[in-house]
Design a protein around this nucleic acid. Structure first.
Lengths: 205, 205
DNA sequence: GTCTATAATTTGATAGAC
DNA sequence: GTCTATCAAATTATAGAC
């Protein structure tokens, strides 16, 4: 007989709950009890499946980093004209962040907290963004004379900053510009087109 | 007799230590013992001077928020031409952040962690940014025809994002672009001019 | 696999001598 | 004001029955 209700396995329930709690509270602020409650199971189960808090966190963090970064490389290293690449980057990346709005502040905060730990041990080199090709592409376009002279590093910082920061400062923006969740989502949708336009208007000759 | 060595009072030593530890570890991750060790004093002293961890954190957080935000209002509400204001904002704000590079990730993270708590209780309304006047100024310039049509909210998000985000994503940028502390500082100095140029090139008619 | 009960550890907070 | 010693609470982790 085919199951109608797709019952999640206990492990999946734990992972979903852990993701929610860790992303909201961070590693240090999260409580194993909160995760167990959220998953609707017993605290002992967490240890049965994931041994300890560190291990559970590692799974969640790597999964989050996986979502947060690798798409970047795919886009950065694609064979595509510069302007098109900028448009593609904003569209793809904002789509991810709209679906996972707490990702940036979570990942970036944990990295800042324990740099050595993550970068040297947990984290593999190939998970990190590799902007090299993108930087070179910008330099080529400058030499070719299709865009204005600008430091490639500055340009890439502008692009990434405008794309990610609204999600980091979301609470601040929403609170003091009186923007509700629906409006925020709409503004982010607009940014998919707005950021590329803003950049291209600035650098095109 | 005049003191040559300016010996810090115990309270000042605690405040300096608490600032360092809280900014690095966050509220949840910071340990009272770490703060005591950093200050070179006993743990009991912390409670003698500040009663408990919450109170001590509150002092540090409000001080940090004070540095992080109010300058914004001063600039946002100044009587000044738009382009000049954008230049002034970047210059002033990046100067603050260069001297306090951990401020943004600390403040924004804590806000995200405990929205209701801080924003409604601890935090006074008048500490938050008030972008209203700035938004209106942008609209006026658009109607006047001096700049291109652009959503004021989008423009202000771009400005703030480009200014603050490099400090939030600093670890990421430095690690995978092979940028050392000195170079980072230099790049931020350049951004004081680079961001206004980038924006003005984009929106000027 | 799942639960209850409990151990072990960490950590914020206090008591009391000096 | 400052310290040592200690307590109390919170939190992670495990033992053992089912």
């Amino acid at each position: 007989m085919v199951k109608i209700k797709k019952e999640k396995s206990t492990e999946d329930k734990i992972l979903a709950a852990a993701k929610k709690i860790f992303l909201k509270k961070g590693m240090a602020g999260a409580r194993m009890q909160d995760i167990a409650d959220e998953a609707g199971i017993n605290k002992a189960m967490l240890h049965y499946y994931f041994r300890n808090k560190d291990k559970l966190f590692e799974v969640i963090f790597l999964d989050a980093a996986e979502k947060f970064f690798p798409k970047v490389n795919y886009i950065f290293e694609a064979e595509m004209p510069l302007f098109e690449k900028i448009e593609y980057f904003c569209d793809e990346y904002i789509s991810i962040l709209v679906e996972n709005p707490y990702l940036p502040v979570f990942v970036l905060n944990e990295i800042n907290r324990d740099l050595e730990g993550f970068l040297t041990n947990i984290w593999k080199k190939d998970r990190l963004p590799r902007p090299q090709k993108f930087l070179e592409q910008i330099e080529r376009e400058i030499k070719r004379g299709t865009i204005k002279r600008i430091s490639p590093v500055q340009l890439i910082m502008n692009l990434i900053s405008m794309t990610i920061f609204p999600f980091v400062g979301r609470a601040m923006f929403q609170y003091n510009m009186n923007i509700d969740d629906m409006q925020f989502r709409m503004i982010m949708e607009q940014r998919k087109k707005e950021i590329p336009k803003f950049i291209i208007d600035s650098i095109k000759k």
